[in-house]
């Protein structure tokens, strides 16, 4: 049985949605912290902004959940397709030399996976109310993706930029 088929009530769907967004916000903040500590303020600011947007989205979902009983699910019991929520960026994808363009590409991957997650549920959940709300969220994620695409146009850095380190870390002579 697919996850979409298992999400058969609004409370479970909202629980997944809130956790998806809040984990994404926390991860963006974590990545922003990493960049601040490593003196990459531009990328830090980008991740911080992305955290802000994820948090706004999470708050919106929490508001819509008002009066409902969100489930309490242990972090490891969420049946995400990957090892973490679909909008949670992978820590191993970042580097202290990364640029805003790289950060935006990571964010776009996150938004794409979030869109796919909601889209699958909008097609596969047995509950019509879940399907409708999931379709709405999928559409929102698509809009985020389009906004990120426009933002990225202003940052045409190549992946090669991140690999060139003028002061590489290595063992002292």
């Amino acid at each position: 049985m697919s996850l979409a088929e298992k999400i058969s009530d609004l409370d479970t769907f909202l629980t997944y949605s809130v956790v998806l967004e809040e984990e994404a916000a926390d991860r963006h903040d974590e990545l922003a912290d990493m960049m601040e500590v490593h003196n990459n303020p531009e990328v830090a600011a980008t991740f911080r902004k992305l955290a802000h947007y994820s948090r706004l989205h999470a708050r919106e979902i929490r508001d819509r959940s008002s009066g409902r009983s969100l489930r309490v699910i242990a972090p490891w019991d969420f049946e995400w397709e990957g090892m973490e929520g679909p909008e949670t960026g992978d820590i191993s994808d970042v580097n202290y030399l990364m640029s805003t363009g790289h950060a935006l590409k990571i964010a776009m991957g996150n938004e794409q996976r979030a869109h796919d997650f909601y889209f699958e549920i909008s097609k596969g959940s047995p509950d019509p109310a879940v399907r409708a709300l999931a379709a709405e969220f999928a559409e929102e994620e698509k809009e985020h993706l389009e906004l990120l695409e426009k933002w990225l146009e202003k940052h045409p850095e190549s992946d090669e930029d991140m690999r060139w380190d003028p002061d590489p870390a290595h063992m002292p002579e």
């Binding site: 926390d26 974590e30 990545l31 912290d33 990493m34 960049m35 601040e36 500590v37 490593h38 309490v72 242990a74 820590i91 191993s92 994808d93 970042v94 580097n95 202290y96 990364m98």
Partner: peptide, 26 residues
């Protein structure tokens, strides 16, 4: 219990100095 304390409550205000991408964050 899970509602009572969140993972953030168990983190200090210090930002880790580990290299970005380090597994130790996880």
């Amino acid at each position: 219990q899970q509602i009572a304390l969140t993972p953030k409550d168990f983190k200090s205000a210090l930002k880790p100095v580990w290299c970005p991408g380090c597994g130790d964050f996880a």
